[in-house]
Amino acid sequence: MLEKRDLILAIAVIVLGATGTYLMLPHRHGSAKPRRVHLIGAVLAGLALLLFATFWRAPASAISSLFFYAFSLAAVAGGLLTITSRNPIHSALWFASVVLSTSGLFLLAGAQFLAAGTVIVYAGAIIVTFLFVIMLAQMEGRAPYDRAARAPGRATFSCFLLFWALFYALLIVRVAPHPKGVAIDTDNERLVRSGEIASSYGLKADHPARLISELARRDTLRMDDISKRPKPHVAGLGEALYTEHLISVELAGTLLFVALIGALAIATPKLPIRPGDPRPQPLTKL
């Protein structure tokens, strides 16, 4: 169970974070808040963030942990600034920083493909689309509905309630540092990681659970090529995608197709003109 010190710290993170976020959010009617309020909010939220950081467990090596803290702090702070900034373009750019920091974390966790994919898809495509839409939709700029926060109090409350629930649930989960030789914990604080099921429970080679976990779980990092050398990470991923997930990949293609058709059908308000249709009458009164 949770120690008292951890519990108090966790409550402090939630309370400070919620207060700070609420103070930093734009006004309900879109008017500017005094600078002092913003400053207090930023200090409180920053304090909460630092306290939150005490719960994180960084990777072992010093340089990795330096990057880990930098990326993590940047991600959470960027997320906060995304929702609190009053200019939609700034929000989009802060969101880009969140995405970049997250892909840094992916990289630290050894998921190179995911990191690259996140940067390419989100930072490269989606956020650029956001920026285009914002710029094209508001050429005169500064619509009041963009600058106002709707129900900031209720939004902050429900979001931090959810955060608290997740935080509390995950706080007591501990990943065993050295699974081999460790006796099986019967308490519920231990997360058995995917590759460790057989070794962690000491399953014999013919135990059905071991058989199933080997059948169902394909570790793309550990796959060997023909000469029994480990494959590059992305090759393993590609192999998994185009063997066991082949059908899902093909279906995702169908999904993209119907999304494309949908975008075409929804974006044009006029009825589609097909070959053989009578030509639309040219406008005479121009």
């Binding site: 099986i184 914990d185 019967t186 308490d187 519920n188 231990r190 058995v192 990681r193 995917s194 590759g195 099921i197 429970y201 059905p208 659970a209 199933i212 976990s213 059948l215 169902a216 779980r217």
Partner: peptide, 20 residues
């Protein structure tokens, strides 16, 4: 469990009787 196969998940959750 680290597996995305639902039957395997169910087996590991149930009849395998692994604690936790």
């Amino acid at each position: 469990t680290g597996g995305s196969n639902l039957k395997a998940l169910a087996y590991l959750a149930g009849p395998a009787q692994l604690p936790n």
